[in-house]
Amino acid sequence: MLTIGQLAAYAGVTARTVRHYHQIGLLPEPERDDSGYRRYGAKAVVSLIKIRTLANAGVPLSQVGPLLEAEPAAFADALQRIDRDLRDEIDRLETSRKQIAQLTTGDTLALPSDVLHYLDRLREIGASERMIDGEREGWILVAARWPDQIPEVMAGKLAQLDDPHHVRLYRLLSEIIDSDPVDDRLLEEAADIMANLAEQAFAAGELNFEEMAQDEVAVGLLDGLLLESDPRAGRMLELMRERGWVGWTRLERLDAPCQR
Rank of each mutant, 00 (worst) to 15 (best):
A198V: 06
L173W: 07
L161E: 00
D163N: 15
L225P: 01
I82N: 05
A11H: 01
D107L: 06
Q102V: 04
D114W: 09
L239K: 03
E69H: 10
I4V: 13
T3Y: 12
G234I: 06
D180H: 14
A74E: 14
L26T: 07
D114H: 15
P147S: 01
A201V: 06
A155S: 11
H22E: 05
E238Y: 14
P112H: 11
D178V: 01
R243F: 03
E175L: 10
L54P: 01
G247L: 05
L67K: 00
A233L: 12
S47K: 15
M240Y: 01
E69L: 12
V217N: 12
L227R: 01
R92A: 15
T108N: 15
L158N: 11
E89L: 13
Q99R: 15
Q99P: 08
V46R: 14
L172T: 04
P28I: 04
M1D: 04
D88I: 02
W146V: 05
T17Q: 11
T17V: 09
S96Y: 00
L172V: 06
Q149D: 13
G41W: 03
L93K: 10
R92N: 04
A204M: 11
A78K: 05
E29R: 12
E228W: 05
H20L: 13
V13T: 13
G25E: 09
H166C: 09
E206A: 15
A73I: 11
A213V: 03
L161P: 06
L172H: 00
D33G: 07
G12H: 07
A198C: 05
D88L: 14
D77W: 07
A143V: 03
L79D: 05
L141F: 00
S47N: 12
K98E: 14
I100A: 13
D91E: 15
L161R: 08
M131T: 06
S35N: 14
E252S: 12
M1V: 11
P147D: 03
I177M: 06
T249I: 07
A190G: 02
L161M: 05
V115F: 03
L61P: 06
T95N: 10
Q63G: 01
A204T: 09
L222P: 00
V46G: 09
R32L: 06
A74W: 03
E94D: 12
E206L: 12
A74G: 11
K43M: 15
P151E: 05
D33N: 14
T95V: 12
A198P: 00
L111G: 07
E89W: 09
S113Y: 08
G134P: 02
L225K: 09
K98L: 14
I193E: 08
A159Q: 10
R87F: 02
M240H: 04
Y170T: 09
L86Q: 13
Y37C: 08
M131R: 15
V217W: 14
R19W: 00
E31A: 15
S62L: 09
R92L: 09
V18W: 07
L227C: 13
F209E: 13
A42K: 14
A191H: 00
G65D: 03
M131F: 12
